[in-house]
Design a protein around this nucleic acid. Structure first.
Length: 622
DNA sequence: GTAGGGTTAG
């Protein structure tokens, strides 16, 4: 007959282990730790079934941010002789320290052991810890090397932890390792590799990986990863094409993640009718009704497609708003020129106790810059460090250079760049260059160009900006020089294009484009409008047009005129343009809005312009 | 019992 205590204790410990796991899994970590304390009272002596209790308890300590509890449990693990040999306990100690932001302790633990004796799972946990602490993480890669050198087998989990944190240059060789070890054949690993190549901008390699996956191994995640790949690399047209392809495929059904990728591409393209179709599909599904990510994508869609009221409606009707929702609506008001409402919402967000992050601060600063609230922008920039504890990044500096530069404070913008604690990047110098164009400063423009063309030599926009600076200053020698450099480097100016999403179809126009079926009617009307604009004394007061060289018909004039010809008064016209609208076209549109007594909206590369009654919502500040 | 892939805002 078994001794009663032994039998009873075994059963009780077993129950404790189950109970602890359940408590930890359901988030009741305090109860889990209390149960462990209670159990330990009955089992003061090792080696007892503590082995089965420690992992859950360690994770509970990490979840509760209780380093002292983790130290205690670590000590128990050592005292009971479970460490260093018990793989489960070793792995969870590493995980607990990683999650408690005590990565050095996790490192030391494994550093002191012979690598060959460390279990795969413990190495995986450490790689994961490195990934958690920083990304990209050379240390994660170094841990993987140590593992391989010691001959410790790696598995799919190793790759899933390592790949997202791997430095860009190590992705192709890791792909090779995954291939040789046959791990690429695990769908999760190939999906992960796919998104890694996406992250480093290797879209073609990502697509190749997708195409090489046998159909039965392509799952929903593979399709979504490919859609995100196109979306994040700015290939919105490919997203829509790929989405169509996905709908044809019988093996997968789009889910919320698919739709989010597609919606964001519709937003970037201004493809409002496709976006609205997806929205009505979404509204039919109850399961999406409370999906915050979807709602955020819809706010972004409507705002970027010109329907701010609808964006606001989605925002107002949300049950749970995250900082992303706030950022989307704030940026929306900003790009439509409603700086006051945007900043009011930001203050409201703070009142609701939401802590601002780097991203929302970028939006707030760019709102200030777009609407010319220079002082307000300076205040917010200063408050980042002093009030919110956010260190300004290059992106924030770029906003500030833009803010000061647009306002004509070129010297202050320059001083800010010089005072930066990190090396300025091309968008920062580009912002200064743009400001020099607005304020016609050749000397500083040349300086900014010199910097920016070293950092981003193939970006045509910068050459065009400097060329326009020279042109405005009557420096034709400069214009010729830039043109020569561009030719020498094989750089071509991005062609301007504009389009209107009319009755579900996109009508695209290039400059001087005659290919549209209605081209004759459109040009005839433009000529009439141009003549009327020249004679319009009311808006014409601020001269300029007469002296402008006739540079052909820009695409936005064609798209707008198409819109005017095909819609009734009161109907929405949204023109979307890939580049910034020029002064001549801007003046033309203001005047036309007065002459034909219509409202219309133009989205250019940087913001929205609402034209009505001879004026623009940007107040000529863009 | 431990380690883990694809999602939104700029």
């Amino acid at each position: 007959m078994q001794s009663v205590p032994a039998h009873a204790s075994g059963g009780c410990a077993c129950m404790s282990a189950v109970g602890l796991r359940q408590l930890a899994a359901s988030g009741r970590h305090h109860k889990a730790l209390a149960l462990l304390r209670h159990t330990l009272l009955f089992y003061p002596q090792p080696p007892i079934p503590i082995a089965s209790l420690l992992p859950s308890a360690l994770l509970a300590a990490a979840a509760l941010s209780l380093p002292a509890a983790a130290f205690h449990l670590h000590a128990i693990s050592l005292k009971s002789g479970l460490l260093p040999s018990d793989a489960y306990v070793l792995t969870t100690v590493v995980t607990a320290y990683s999650r408690l932001r005590l990565l050095p302790l996790a490192c030391r633990l494994l550093d002191e052991l012979p690598a060959a004796e460390i279990a795969t799972s413990a190495f995986n946990a450490l790689i994961c810890g490195h990934a958690l602490a920083s990304s990209p993480s050379p240390a994660a890669l170094a841990t993987f090397r140590r593992m391989r050198l010691a001959g410790v087998p790696f598995d799919d989990v190793t790759f899933l932890a390592l790949l997202p944190a791997a430095p860009p240059a190590s992705i192709p060789p890791l792909h090779g390792v995954a291939f040789r070890s046959s791990l690429v054949f695990a769908p999760s690993v190939s999906n992960c590799l796919l998104s890694c190549f996406s992250r480093i901008g290797a879209v073609d390699v990502a697509r190749q990986l997708f195409d090489e996956m046998p159909d039965q191994r392509k799952d929903l995640v593979s399709w979504n990863a490919m859609i995100s790949c196109y979306a994040q690399n700015g290939l919105a047209h490919q997203v829509l094409a790929f989405y169509d392809k996905m709908k044809e495929s019988t093996s997968v059904e789009p889910d919320a993640i698919t739709l989010i990728g597609v919606l964001s591409s519709c937003a970037n393209l201004g493809a409002h009718s496709i976006g609205r179709r997806i929205e009505s599909f979404i509204n039919q599904k109850d399961s999406y009704a409370s999906n915050t990510h979807i709602k955020n994508a819809l706010i972004n869609l409507h705002a970027k497609c010109g329907d701010l009221a609808r964006a606001r409606k989605v925002f107002d009707e949300m049950h749970l708003r995250t900082i992303v929702s706030w950022t989307a609506i704030i940026a929306g008001y900003g790009m439509h020129g409603h700086g006051d409402e945007a900043l009011f919402l930001f203050d409201k967000m703070l009142e609701e106790g939401i802590k601002p992050d780097e991203v929302v601060m970028v939006s707030v600063l760019s709102v200030c810059s777009h609407v010319g609230m220079t002082d307000k922008g300076m205040e917010y920039f200063a408050s980042m460090k002093t009030v919110h504890g956010i260190m300004p990044s290059r992106e924030h500096y770029a906003c500030m250079v833009d803010l000061l530069g647009r306002a004509g404070q070129l010297k202050e913008a320059w001083d800010l760049i010089v005072s930066m604690p990190m090396e300025p990047d091309s968008p920062i110098w580009g912002a200064l260059l743009g400001a020099c164009k607005i304020h016609k400063n050749v000397e500083l423009g040349e300086l900014a160009f010199e910097k920016v063309s070293k950092l981003d030599p193939t970006n045509v926009g910068y050459y065009v900006l400097l060329s326009n600076i020279y042109s405005d200053a009557g420096r034709l020698d400069g214009v010729a020089r830039i043109r020569a450099i561009m030719k020498q480097n094989g750089l071509k100016k991005d062609p301007g294009c504009s389009y209107v999403d009319y009755k579900g179809k996109v009508h695209l126009f290039m400059a001087d484009d005659h290919s549209h079926p209605q081209a004759n009617r459109i040009y005839k009307m433009i000529l009439q409008l141009e003549a009327m604009v020249k004679n319009d004394n009311r808006v014409y007061r601020n001269k300029t047009t007469e002296n402008l060289p006739l540079t052909g018909i820009h695409s936005e004039k064609l798209a707008l005129t198409f819109g005017l010809l095909n819609t009734e008064s009161g109907e929405e016209i949204v023109v979307i343009k890939n580049l910034r609208v020029c002064e001549d076209c801007h003046h033309f549109m203001k005047t036309v809005s007065h002459i034909v007594n219509r409202k219309f909206i133009v989205r250019d590369a940087s913001r929205f312009h609402h034209f009505e009654g001879g004026a623009c919502s940007c107040k000529d500040y863009w």
